[in-house]
Design a protein around this nucleic acid. Structure first.
Lengths: 258, 258
DNA sequence: AAACATCGTTTTAATATATGAAACATCATC
DNA sequence: GATGATGTTTCATATATTAAAACGATGTTT
């Protein structure tokens, strides 16, 4: 904590420790994890709790993220001006496809999941809304890359290949720049991206771009399911349904740009 | 800003200024509004932007709430352990009722909207997820109050009547403690609350409680619509459908307590 | 039941960080 | 090209933040 200059940074460094994997922390525990003084962390937690940013469990005395963050999170424009407007359409698409449907945007050279509607069927994905993931190994990511303006795509590929040093999650993951570039060209031609077990064995995914009324890619839409259920011959139908959804979304979001 | 001691408080005081009504701010403007120095606010905004908590529009140079808050907001347990699990059920209820459906919890003696599914029909409410509102003038609020343990209800009524000094939004709004208390008893007997234009003229609302597996009220569920469409004879049907939803939700949330 | 841990909380003086006035930069508009 | 409105940087000063230590409460071990 010595390296951090401003209290603002310290505040959010603390909040970042409250993850899905570890949503509850005690003072001492957290101070140890952050490598900071106990009383310093104590004061931060106390302050944040008073504001409702953290919640202190009456019995366990452990802290977790509070309603204030839920409140602020819902005020973010991406949520109020995009997700809220597109969600009903997502429900429609999911109903018609009967597989899990996702929307993602491109952020920091990664995909950022902003909404999903889960398949009513047993097998589901476990992606979290508000979570990030690699762009190179997913249909959502590849399609976002494919429809980026050339200069931006160049730069994105550069960053992905150098700073992220792609990991082969499965034997099908594309980790090579040339291969990815060719794939992106093909995606742009076909209008959709396919991910056949590139990020996880047994998982298949189709993704299409969502354009705003300036014809800029603003997000991508996907359907995904287990490989045994996700038949080759359905892909065309999925794409058609997704595109119908994308068109409807386009009407609703005006000139939105994330 | 002089009165505020910790930077944590200053940070969230700043974030609170980014509302739905005014989601974008410039430095000078915001400094004036807060009553603080320009360069101080500038540094806060710069720090917050670097962290992704705020977003600085490339052209307008204005600041707005950023994706980091969306991310953190989705990690709040109420969202990940409650809303995510209950949302599909909400969709079902809304589909079957064909009116807007809401879920709220009780917080700080107010109702806190945590999820909604809008009616596909033209006329809609404009409540925001993550927003608070009075408990005494809504079906969601009255039903939450009605099923509170006696001691807590006492205290809640006390706070509401003294600190909130109820406002008569319409001629039907209950602003009197005795009247409200009688109403709560009736609600508990009947098992549901009705709001006939008590918070807004032309708006009718039915609400029922959601219990967890310890039989504690954890939330309330409502259907609402314009008075011309919302016929008396449908209320029973609505209640039945809502209760079916509440039962399904109860299964999914285990012993959740907000 | 005494001794020992472990946790949250409070206190303190030392110091690092936040502050605000002023100057500067950039951009419109007049 | 002067004027006024932005955002941004600088710097001495004031002040909030820091960390060690002590405290109190609770639970665990011997």
């Amino acid at each position: 904590m010595k390296e951090l200059k401003s209290s603002v940074q310290k505040t959010f460094k603390i909040l970042e420790y409250f993850t899905t994997q570890k949503p509850e922390w005690g003072v001492t525990e957290l101070a140890k994890a952050i490598g900071s003084n106990k009383s310093t962390v104590y004061r931060f937690l106390a302050d944040l709790t008073k504001l409702g940013v953290l919640y202190k469990h009456p019995e366990t005395e452990k802290y977790s993220l509070g309603l204030k963050l839920f409140e602020l999170g819902n005020r973010v424009q991406l949520k109020s001006a995009f997700v809220d407007k597109t969600h009903p359409e997502l429900i429609e698409v999911a109903k018609s496809i009967t597989e899990t449907v996702h929307i993602a945007v491109f952020k920091n050279y990664q995909i950022f999941h902003i909404d999903k509607v889960e398949s009513p069927q047993g097998l589901k994905l476990s992606s979290r809304i508000g979570s990030s993931g690699p762009a190179y190994s997913t249909a959502l990511g590849k399609v976002l890359l494919a429809f980026l303006p050339t200069a931006e795509q160049e730069q994105a590929l550069q960053v992905i290949m150098t700073e992220q040093s792609p990991i082969a999650f499965t034997e099908y993951t594309i980790t090579n720049r040339q291969t990815l570039q060719k794939e992106l060209i093909k995606i742009k031609e076909k209008g959709y991206a396919l991910d056949r077990e590139e990020s996880e064995m047994g998982l298949i995914c189709v993704g299409i771009p969502i354009f705003n009324q300036h014809n800029e890619v603003v997000a991508s839409l996907s359907a995904s399911g287990p490989s045994n259920r996700f038949k080759e011959e359905n892909v065309v139908n999925y794409v058609t349904t997704l595109q119908k959804g994308a068109t409807a979304i386009r009407q609703r979001i005006d000139y939105f740009k994330p």
